[in-house]
Design a binder for these strands. Structure first.
Lengths: 166, 166
DNA sequence: GTCAAGTATCTTGATATCAAGTAATTCATC
DNA sequence: GATGAATTACTTGATATCAAGATACTTGAC
């Protein structure tokens, strides 16, 4: 049983053995799978007129609970983006009437981004379909593999978030 | 032990239990880790004046063995990109003198992309550092987790490449 | 041989992202 | 309280990517 990455590692071995390409068994596989997963998810968001990142913002607001409002900085951190990117995402979402920028009463440098009623209705509809699709994708894994994978990735993420390495 | 994704799944559960966000334990973790890994790797490529995708093209040519030449379509498929994106990557790499477009003797619609001597020298230098960095990143995982992870991801990739699902 | 269908590369226009820098505000230290 | 450092959101200019379409060539069915 081989996949694309296994073939690539073998090529490196026979064509340029000065390097050890074996880390690709983990890293390249993860990155290729992520790319494909992203494409599938983004096709679903597209049906609702959203890009992946738009959903990410709306979902972060929705799951934060009432009053469904966060500062741009919190949204930026949660999404692993730069502040400029978040500004343009918010511009778009505001134009679509899904969020509203309001003054932040506690800090005049800051804003509060509010989910509008339309935004809330939309994100709930999209989220239902989104998580169904994610569950569907995971059916390619055995229950044991899925369980093991979640555990390994949790340990890895936790370590990175703690150490701050990488 | 919790990570960002565990907190997010809990938020969904308490704020909108109509959805089951548990697929995120696998999918969101993988995507977040990939994003971080990409940033780290791309910082290394940047030291050599390359973007991640540029290295990808050069590396694909190098590991294909002599005469270090492939058609644009092969490079496009291997990188999971559109043909337009590959065109502009090749424009850039040609401008840098790292690859050369030549006519394809077997198919006048097609070209052959040749790695130049400068391209070969550069990609070998970058690859050395690149794989060292990847090995370093994997030290965050125990040897058992690393082994298990590679196996699970291989089964998953293989299934996707075979089924064509997703 | 002819021609329809498929393939290969490139072009165009739109969007998403980043890095670097700006202006307003808050915080911390003296 | 005054002031320098940090923080917040935004702006700008550059690049990477995609989807859709254009053009040239090849393949296969007849």
């Amino acid at each position: 049983m081989t996949d694309h990455v296994a073939r690539v590692v073998n090529q490196w071995k026979s064509e340029y053995s000065e390097v050890d390409a074996s880390p690709m068994y983990v890293l390249a596989r993860m990155m290729r799978l992520s790319t494909q997963i992203n494409k599938t998810l983004s096709a679903n968001f597209g049906k609702f007129g959203l890009a992946t990142g738009d959903f990410d913002v709306l979902a972060t607001l929705r799951r934060s609970g009432t009053p469904y409002a966060l500062r741009p900085t919190e949204l930026t951190r949660s999404s692993m983006l730069t502040s400029g990117t978040m500004t343009s995402r918010l511009d778009k979402l505001e134009r679509l009437g899904l969020v509203r920028r309001e003054a932040n009463p506690n800090d005049r440098r800051a804003l509060m981004i509010h989910l509008t009623d339309a935004g809330r209705t939309l994100v709930e509809k999209v989220a239902g379909k989104h998580f169904e699709l994610e569950a569907e994708m995971l059916k390619a894994l055995s229950p044991e593999d899925r369980e093991a994978l979640a555990g390994i990735l949790e340990r890895w993420s936790h370590k990175l978030e703690t150490d701050g390495t990488m």
